[in-house]
Computed example of a mutant assay.
Amino acid sequence: MTQQILLIEDDQRLAEMVRDYLGESDFDVTIAATGTEGLALQRQRGFDAVLLDLMLPDTDGLEVCRTLRATDSVPILMLTAKGEPMDRIVGLEIGADDYLPKPFEPRELLARLRAILRRGKGEDRPDIMRFGTLEIDPQAMEARIGGKVCALTSHQFKLLEIMAGSAGRVLSRDYIMNALKGEDLGAFDRSIDVHISRIRAEIEEDPNRPRRLITVRGAGYVFARSQD
């Protein structure tokens, strides 16, 4: 069944490109050029998802998101022209389901749209990953050893989640940095190695002789499938 998408975007050329591209994947996209028009359309028609530009001519996209969330659980994907970390954080805190910095690849937009639609239906909930006494809980953004929460920053947790999600596979530093696209990469300016070391201090029995997060000399790192 064709899903109805509301795109609140004042850049007509971009809006038409998105409409045409998503139309090829069986989405019916309605365009609103202002936040006021978009809010009115959502109240009238109740779309399956909203693609919401941060910068609008009549109001702030964050305010539109806040207004929608006051009465509506529709999945919201924010489009952020500058990709400023604070804008992303505020957007997520007030109820956006995801964000996508401009310029973006249409395929990535499609993938993120499908993901928030699945989550809106209660699908695609990330399960807890278990490796012996280590638990990695994506929803809570927690890593636990024997039930005790590890002291990891959100960036370090994301790095651990990426490694664990590819357990048994050697990941290069370049691959890891690419997988972290969309994160505040400034948090990694002291190199992946430093953060790996800090993660080991929390999840390894002996950080100097790691059994979980292992260095593969000249290649990168591998998260061991079997550890305990």
Rank of each mutant, 00 (worst) to 15 (best):
R118D: 09
P101L: 06
I128Q: 02
P103K: 09
P85M: 05
A111H: 10
G120Y: 14
K121R: 04
E123Q: 14
M129H: 05
P106G: 06
E108Y: 02
G83W: 05
L110Y: 11
D87C: 09
A96S: 07
G91W: 04
R130V: 15
L113T: 04
D97M: 08
I116N: 02
A115F: 00
P101A: 03
L100Y: 09
K82H: 06
G83L: 02
L109Q: 00
A115D: 15
R114L: 12
R112C: 10
R130N: 14
D98C: 01
E108R: 02
A111C: 12
P101E: 00
R119Q: 12
P103G: 01
E123R: 11
R112V: 15
A111W: 00
E93H: 10
D127L: 14
E123A: 10
R88S: 04
G91Q: 08
P126W: 00
R88L: 02
D97Y: 05
K121Y: 10
I89V: 11
E105G: 03
D124W: 12
E123M: 15
G83K: 12
R130G: 11
F131V: 15
E84K: 09
L113D: 04
G83T: 08
R118A: 09
I89Q: 11
I94E: 04
F131E: 12
D124H: 11
D98I: 03
G91V: 03
D127K: 11
L92K: 02
G120C: 14
D87R: 01
L92F: 00
R88G: 07
P106K: 02
G95F: 11
I94S: 02
R125T: 15
E123H: 07
L117E: 15
P101H: 07
I89M: 04
R88V: 06
G83D: 07
I116A: 13
F131P: 14
E108C: 07
D127Q: 13
K102A: 13
G83I: 07
K102E: 04
K82S: 05
E105A: 12
L113K: 00
R88H: 08
G83M: 14
Y99S: 07
F131K: 06
G120V: 15
P103S: 04
I94T: 09
G91L: 02
P85R: 01
V90R: 08
A96W: 10
E93A: 05
I116T: 07
F104C: 08
E108D: 11
E84D: 13
P101Q: 03
Y99Q: 01
P85G: 01
P101K: 06
G95Q: 12
K121N: 09
R114P: 05
M129L: 13
L92A: 03
G91F: 00
R112N: 05
D98G: 08
L117R: 06
E84F: 00
G120F: 13
G122Y: 06
R118W: 00
E84P: 11
M86R: 04
I116E: 01
D127H: 13
D97W: 02
G122S: 05
R107F: 10
R114A: 14
P85F: 02
P103E: 15
L100F: 11
I94W: 00
A115W: 05
E84Y: 03
F131R: 07
E105Q: 08
A115Y: 13
E108H: 03
M86E: 00
R107G: 13
R107S: 13
G122Q: 14
R107V: 14
